[in-house]
Simulated scan of single mutants.
Amino acid sequence: MNKFAIEIKWGIRYAFLWIFWLYIEKSSGYYEAKISDHALYSLLFTFVTLFVYYVAIKEKKKDFFKDQMTWKQGCTAGIFLTVVIALLTPICQIIFHKAIAPEFFPNMIEYSVSKGNSRETATNYFNLSSYIIQSIFGALSFGVVLAAIVALFLQTKVKK
Rank of each mutant, 00 (worst) to 15 (best):
M1W: 08
M1A: 11
F4E: 10
F4H: 15
A5L: 09
A5D: 05
E7M: 14
E7P: 15
I8K: 01
K9N: 03
K9E: 01
W10K: 00
W10N: 03
Y14Q: 01
Y14G: 01
L17E: 02
L17Y: 12
I19E: 01
I24M: 09
K26F: 10
S27E: 15
G29V: 10
E32N: 13
S36K: 09
S36V: 05
S36M: 04
Y41N: 04
Y41K: 08
L43V: 07
L43G: 13
L44F: 13
F47N: 04
T49F: 00
T49L: 05
L50S: 04
Y53W: 15
Y53D: 13
V55P: 04
A56Y: 08
K60L: 01
K61S: 06
K62F: 06
K62A: 10
D63S: 15
D63T: 14
K66T: 13
D67I: 13
Q68H: 09
Q68E: 12
M69K: 11
M69F: 07
T70V: 07
W71A: 02
K72T: 15
K72C: 11
K72E: 15
Q73W: 11
Q73R: 11
Q73C: 10
G74A: 07
C75K: 09
C75G: 12
A77E: 07
F80N: 14
L81A: 03
L81H: 03
T82Y: 02
V83Y: 01
V83F: 05
A86R: 04
L88M: 10
T89H: 00
T89V: 00
I91A: 09
C92I: 00
C92D: 00
Q93T: 15
I94H: 08
I94V: 12
I94Y: 12
I95H: 00
F96D: 14
I100A: 05
A101P: 08
E103C: 01
E103T: 02
E103N: 05
F104G: 05
F105I: 05
P106V: 14
N107Q: 11
N107Y: 03
N107A: 13
E110C: 07
Y111E: 11
V113T: 12
K115G: 04
G116C: 07
E120C: 02
T121L: 07
A122E: 15
A122G: 15
A122L: 12
T123V: 07
T123S: 13
N124T: 12
Y125E: 10
N127H: 04
S129R: 15
S129L: 10
S130H: 08
Y131V: 03
Y131G: 04
I132N: 06
I133S: 14
I136M: 01
A139D: 06
A139P: 11
L140C: 09
G143D: 14
V144L: 13
V144Q: 14
V145P: 01
L146M: 15
A147C: 08
A147V: 11
A147F: 08
A148R: 05
I149G: 10
V150M: 06
V150E: 07
A151R: 12
F153W: 13
L154F: 04
L154S: 08
L154Q: 10
V158E: 03
K160G: 10
